[in-house]
Amino acid sequence: MRKMVKMAYVIDDDRIHVHLLKKVIEIKAIAEELMVFENGREALNHLKKILRKPKKQQILPEIIFLDLNMPVMNGWEFLQEFTKLKNKLEQKISLYVMSSSIDAQELERAQSLNLIKDYLIKPLELKKFEKIFGNDTAA
Rank of each mutant, 00 (worst) to 15 (best):
P71D: 12
S99W: 03
M35P: 00
Q58Y: 02
K122I: 08
Q58C: 00
I64A: 06
L89S: 11
L124F: 10
V36I: 00
L95K: 05
S94C: 03
L124E: 11
M1Q: 09
Q91T: 10
G134C: 14
D13W: 08
K86H: 10
E106H: 03
K53W: 15
L21W: 00
I11R: 10
I63C: 01
K131W: 10
V18D: 01
L124I: 10
L113I: 08
M1E: 12
K28W: 03
S101G: 02
G40Q: 10
E108K: 05
Y119I: 11
I63A: 00
K84S: 06
F133Y: 10
D12T: 11
R41V: 05
L47M: 14
K84H: 07
K88Y: 07
V18P: 00
N74C: 13
S101N: 01
K23R: 13
D13A: 07
L120P: 09
A138D: 13
K48Y: 12
E33M: 02
R109C: 01
L44F: 06
P61L: 01
K131L: 14
I93W: 14
M1I: 07
K128M: 09
G40C: 05
L47H: 08
L126C: 09
K128L: 10
N69A: 09
K128A: 14
I102C: 04
N74R: 11
V97G: 05
I116L: 08
F133V: 07
G40D: 05
P61S: 09
L68P: 00
L66C: 07
E42S: 12
E108N: 06
N87I: 08
L60S: 12
V72E: 14
L51P: 02
M35N: 06
I50K: 05
P71W: 14
V18Q: 01
R15F: 09
M1N: 12
K6G: 15
E26D: 15
K122F: 05
K56H: 04
I63N: 06
K22N: 08
I64D: 06
E42G: 11
K131E: 10
E38N: 12
E81I: 03
I25Q: 03
I64N: 09
V24L: 15
F65I: 01
L115Q: 12
E90F: 15
L124R: 09
L47N: 04
Q58E: 03
L124H: 10
L107A: 00
Q80Y: 09
S101W: 02
D67A: 06
I16D: 04
L113A: 06
E81L: 06
F37P: 03
I64M: 04
Q91C: 09
V72C: 08
M98I: 02
K127H: 14
P54S: 09
M98G: 02
Q105S: 04
I16K: 13
L120G: 14
N87Q: 08
M7H: 15
K49S: 14
K92V: 08
E32N: 10
I30M: 11
N87L: 07
D67C: 08
P54E: 10
Q111E: 04
S101C: 01
S99H: 01
R109Q: 03
I116E: 04
G40L: 05
R52S: 08
F78V: 13
A43R: 01
L34T: 01
K56F: 02
Q80S: 08
K92G: 11
K53R: 15
